[in-house]
Design a protein around this nucleic acid. Sequence first.
DNA 1: CCATCAACGCAACTAGGAGTTGCAATGGAG
DNA 2: CTCCATTGCAACTCCTAGTTGCGTTGATGG
Lengths: 204, 204
Amino acid sequence: MESAESPSKRAPAAGRGNRMRAAVLEATLAELTESGYAALTVEGVARRAGVHKTTIYRNWKDSDGLVADALAGHFATDIPIPDTGAVEDDLRALARSLVAAMTTRAGRALLTTVLSDAARLPRFAEVKHALFEDRFRRAEPVVTRAVERGELPADTDPAELLKALAAPIYFRLVFTGEPVDEATADRAARIALAAAHAGALPAT
Amino acid sequence: MESAESPSKRAPAAGRGNRMRAAVLEATLAELTESGYAALTVEGVARRAGVHKTTIYRNWKDSDGLVADALAGHFATDIPIPDTGAVEDDLRALARSLVAAMTTRAGRALLTTVLSDAARLPRFAEVKHALFEDRFRRAEPVVTRAVERGELPADTDPAELLKALAAPIYFRLVFTGEPVDEATADRAARIALAAAHAGALPAT
DNA sequence: CCATCAACGCAACTAGGAGTTGCAATGGAG
DNA sequence: CTCCATTGCAACTCCTAGTTGCGTTGATGG
């Protein structure tokens, strides 16, 4: 998404903008974590970043673009895809990775932000999509391998199984507010596996 | 939660305040549905309700109290508890009721509001609790009856089963944005049932 | 090493919502 | 029909969004 170079002109000062950008995005995440999306102010971010608000407005279209950038950066780290040779272990590993990523203070707050009504903005929808669709697609081999090994019914839908795995974890995180730990992850794996074995997750 | 009567004074004009209150709460829901929580303004609500903003400030502590009241009112309608004699039918009925309640435009928008960072305020936490804990508790007989009939393992945790039922539905609603219909409800019932039969939902 | 110019700092705006206050208008209970 | 609680209204203060013009700075090419 970076703009093309204009070779006739002098190169724009390289490190300065990047430092500023990093400071602002970090400050945005911190503000979101502490106060939430509805309470976010550009001036607050500017103060925390040690930057003037005009600088922010010159680099981001509006505060939503800023938040979207910050979230995209934070959730850019991919979850490792396990391959132990046993579905149950793989699913448990996936679930535990998810739990670990979402139980940090920042993870919770930023998840909340992604789910807030900001989600009606296209930029946020993209971040959300990357978080819940693309990530899941990357993990699908875990299921297809298990099917090939004969551990799961042949018509098991990989995406559906992964959603059945993630749903109980996100549900506790976001809705009931109950503690979420490795036991939660293991239980989610057990539920998803039971559903798959029972043939409750057929490809449509 | 109504204030105690003061018998020595004249009775406060009865119908007026109630009409105003209803108009304001309805306007609040409409604004939330259209624009979301972050974009909500007291003046906007006042305009839509045909009321002056001072009136709102005199009747509600702040805009959060207003939103909390509106949400509590909207979600006050309870879901009917089925008792068909067969767990599978009961669970399907519960799931379908949930889907019906949450797939209206207002239902989606208000669910989003409950999940927004407004949730860090105590008033919203109460609404959320009523929505996700109390409701579930009311539905627990569906599970206990099934256990008594021998349809489910004796150590099945009612709350866990109901959460396993609701989780996939909410997950699609809130996270992936996929369409949610009766087929989704039926699949959720199948997943929850498979997990229960497999003994994956034991009481802790 | 240093001049240059893009990017940043800064002040001063406009616009609008949050939340408050004093007073006038009104409508419902008695 | 009267009275007074409640609402309408205007005029505030304070804060943030977002913009503009100009002065300042610092990284880079020469």
